[in-house]
Write a protein that binds this DNA or RNA. Structure first.
Lengths: 151, 151
DNA sequence: TATTGTTATACTCTATAACTATA
DNA sequence: TATAGTTATAGAGTATAACAATA
């Protein structure tokens, strides 16, 4: 059985992601936010807020950790908890007016910051990259589900 | 000025990397290692060891943190420090015999684990993905260096 | 003076599990 | 009984800076 070498691809995936993280963090740190906190702000931006559970699923932060991250953002007056009307167990997390202001101030800057890295990449390569990454993710997720189903 | 939309690509990059991490972690956790510890073992495998500084550069772990990670692996008898002959300030970190044994036992398993996710991906897509990721990384690194040079 | 690695500090994230209050 | 979120705990990574030994 022949094996296509996938290890170099995984190495590039890791390097590219880490380069993105490092580059992104340059800007995020100037805002006095951690990457996790920025992730929450960016996820809540342009939404009316969302339940804890959904926020955790979108940011891949587990509920126990999320409580702490949201606490810290609450201390900074950037987000707030609102009791859900429909479910007494549920809390909606939303940006405060200060949080909205921060989001609106920093997100365009963040995009501009990122865009500087992309100006030289050929558009068609960008599109292909997006598709291939999507396939790769699907393959990884389905392999993971196979394991879960088996064990 | 027209802008090629790069945000979807970055989202896919993040999702794909996180899927990889999650899938990879399934196996790593069964070994009683953290991802950072596994990274060190994998980096030291098939080498005669390397100085602290180089190990930090390869794993992207800063020196202060690296001391702690190496301490924990030393407690587990998987790596050891050896004073460098050529530079009195420098420590070489290398796998112990137990570390080598672990590496030789787990690395093939790890590859097999990963390969399960790749069997369905078309080989040519894998090759293109590798190239495009490489370009993307270069773009991000050079954008970052531009900032450093400017500030 | 600059560099290697250690130490110390304070914070943040992670994983896990027990707990509460609602459903 | 199950679910949403909180609390508690122990461990681990991060950033930063001061420090000792050596170059």
């Amino acid at each position: 059985m022949t094996t296509t070498p996938f290890l170099p691809t995984l190495r590039e995936l890791t390097s590219a992601y880490q380069a993105f993280e490092a580059y992104s963090a340059v800007h995020i740190r100037t805002l006095d936010l951690t990457p996790a906190q920025f992730d929450i702000i960016a996820t809540l931006g342009n939404t009316p807020g969302m339940p804890f559970k959904e926020l955790g699923e979108k940011t891949l932060i587990t509920k126990g950790t999320l409580t702490g991250v949201v606490d810290r953002l609450t201390d900074k007056k950037l987000v707030q908890r609102v009791a859900s009307l429909s479910d007494g167990r549920s809390q909606t997390v939303q940006l405060t007016p200060q949080g909205v202001a921060l989001f609106e101030r920093i997100f365009p800057d963040h995009l501009a910051h990122l865009q500087r890295a992309f100006v030289e990449l050929p558009p068609d390569e960008l599109v292909n990259l997006e598709k291939s990454l999507h396939h790769l993710r699907e393959a990884l997720v389905s392999a993971r589900n196979n394991i879960k189903a088996t064990s």
